[in-house]
Design a protein around this nucleic acid. Sequence first.
DNA 1: AATGAATGAGAGTTCATTCAT
DNA 2: GATGAATGAACTCTCATTCAT
Lengths: 220, 220, 220, 220
Amino acid sequence: MSAAPRTARGEQTRRRILEAAEHVFAEHGYTESSVSRITERAGVGQGTFYLYFDSKLDVFDELVEDLNQRVRHAMSEGARGATSRLEAEREGFAAFFRFTAEHPALYRVVREAEFVSPGALRLHYTRIVEGYIDGLRQAQLDGEISDIDPTVAAWALMGIGEMIGMRWVLWGNGAGGPGDDADPTASGTDAVPEHVLDEMMRFIGGALGRGDRRSEGEDS
Amino acid sequence: MSAAPRTARGEQTRRRILEAAEHVFAEHGYTESSVSRITERAGVGQGTFYLYFDSKLDVFDELVEDLNQRVRHAMSEGARGATSRLEAEREGFAAFFRFTAEHPALYRVVREAEFVSPGALRLHYTRIVEGYIDGLRQAQLDGEISDIDPTVAAWALMGIGEMIGMRWVLWGNGAGGPGDDADPTASGTDAVPEHVLDEMMRFIGGALGRGDRRSEGEDS
Amino acid sequence: MSAAPRTARGEQTRRRILEAAEHVFAEHGYTESSVSRITERAGVGQGTFYLYFDSKLDVFDELVEDLNQRVRHAMSEGARGATSRLEAEREGFAAFFRFTAEHPALYRVVREAEFVSPGALRLHYTRIVEGYIDGLRQAQLDGEISDIDPTVAAWALMGIGEMIGMRWVLWGNGAGGPGDDADPTASGTDAVPEHVLDEMMRFIGGALGRGDRRSEGEDS
Amino acid sequence: MSAAPRTARGEQTRRRILEAAEHVFAEHGYTESSVSRITERAGVGQGTFYLYFDSKLDVFDELVEDLNQRVRHAMSEGARGATSRLEAEREGFAAFFRFTAEHPALYRVVREAEFVSPGALRLHYTRIVEGYIDGLRQAQLDGEISDIDPTVAAWALMGIGEMIGMRWVLWGNGAGGPGDDADPTASGTDAVPEHVLDEMMRFIGGALGRGDRRSEGEDS
DNA sequence: AATGAATGAGAGTTCATTCAT
DNA sequence: GATGAATGAACTCTCATTCAT
């Protein structure tokens, strides 16, 4: 049974293992990552791992949890200070893409979670979506956007961010075509090009509409 | 080295292995699926597997390829006969969700492909997206939709379909909450509820807009 | 149970398998050679193999037997017409080296026989040695060489031929140093350089001495 | 990846595996020796093997290397104190035969190396031959032997030792005839009979000649 | 707190051989 | 006579995890 570290030294060791795990998982995926590779990278003995984690799956879950908190924090930080829902959306996405570019682990690790730890995956998506829903509902109250079902819209937004992020961040801005069989680790980590972000926001802007549009439309 | 079957009997055996692989992969994911589980399910000896496939990865790739063709066929069949781009979109998505509900393997297998066979994953998404792009371009020529960048819009549509499909088809219509840690296999395979499809299409309809809207708006 | 071919067609098939086996064994050694590789090279079905041979070991033995006959034939052909024991020796060795260069299988296959089929190995060496012994004994009767124990001398000659052949024929005339880790198949198949053959014969000439030397030497 | 043992316990385990490997390889040859047989004999778990060796081939190479050092040491120890080149040769061969009798692995393992690890094989022979060459050259400077090409002579000596060793040590002093199909392991491990050694040395003595013979002999 | 040694179950894969056609 | 389908035992190697120090 693992235990919480009792000393500052222990705390540090634990953190080093977690960081090593993030890198290793990001590079090789869950199944191809071995505990020994993690401990090696962390510079600790193999046995030490089990002082702080119950199992390989245990670190994985903790990692997903950790990444989820960090990405949500990054997104809300990015959106802070926006003066409209759409601006908030844009800044939130931009922050998300930046975070993804800096932590490719997020994508890779999370996607693999479907098989490894389905609960963690659902929790991850659901939490982000809940943030969207809150924002959308508020915007609807403010008459800023249409009265679309906020849950459906939120999952749609989630999907857009995921796919655009995969296509332009993870695969790199260049080709990204199927021929590009290369090591996924190697692919670009640039942010999404400005043009793509613009068009994506135009797409979303139209999707969410204006609060008054429907009445207008229905009036005519 | 594997070889193509040279007799009807061999052809049948190969097909049985492929079918077994689809089920096993869908249930357990790539890494948790062993060749022996596949051959056991197919009712053949372990060695027989290697008569027709070079490796475990080989079947996987073939399976992704196969599923890709089938889902695209299902989507274009679904959309055939639609009288507008939006109707085509709706019917295409509906067909996609139906297919997903009937073949949960698609989702699971494809998502895992990111680590297992990145080339296969990209090819899969890219092909579907190319179909979208063609449709969007035509609709733009017909003045049916706005002049949004079709590539960006297509990837956004792909993401929407993916995420909505995951949320409502794969996780089931019910809870789907994070607490639902259970065996993903067990989750519902119903289609997406009518209401969700409606709202999703409202979202997409707004996103793609009308071809004349921008000019009109800009004119005024 | 295999059987002797009953038709001309069968005879031909059998021979094709045997030839294919020689090449495959020579290139990959016994254990790395699979029956399927042999049948593939022979252009026949896998089952056909067992029509003419009881087992993989069976072809191997037959091959060793066959090579043994051919190399002894080549050696005696080479030595035919020699006017002295030493000349006969030289021509015999030269023929041996030529044969080895043309059929590297001999060396490789025979050497591996030690583990695969020890009986075959012993038989191979013993037969060649017996030829030497006969020749040496005759030469002694003719007073051409010293009265050294012909059995010991014969095995010594066998060893010299083996080692020189390995060093200069199998490893190639060039470097042959230990650094040369390359594929043994690729190594040169040139014959032994003239100079080496000369020196080797000087060595052997001294070793066998002249029949009159001992008496002479002892007399003095 | 294997690693060097870091504790005394690990060191001991590694040595036990190496010793077990020597016996198992000597008895069954490389291909018929399985890692599990080795670990079983060493009394350790299968996985333990890979703690200290990268692969089956890895132990094999190390074993060849080890045997090579030991046999060369035995030979130079044996020859130490000899007062003539010929005496040194005789004692060196005697030591070689004794070593072979005590470590039949040498022969079997080395001979199989041709296919398993050609580089190791060449290195083994080349190193021994180099020792011969040095000795021969020195003896030539001292006028003790003829001016024969030392490289050719050295390889010839190597071959003689190999073959005589195989015939009388490995096959046993008795029959050795081809009929003796039995398990090669069972064959005798006695040293070479005195008579054989005598005759072999007479052969070699004549071959190397005396430094003054050629000029003197040819002059007279 | 920390570690390296040890393990055994299980993975993917190969192959000599048999057999129905 | 000839064949390709089929098999299952055996192989090498990996790895999460436990434990004595």
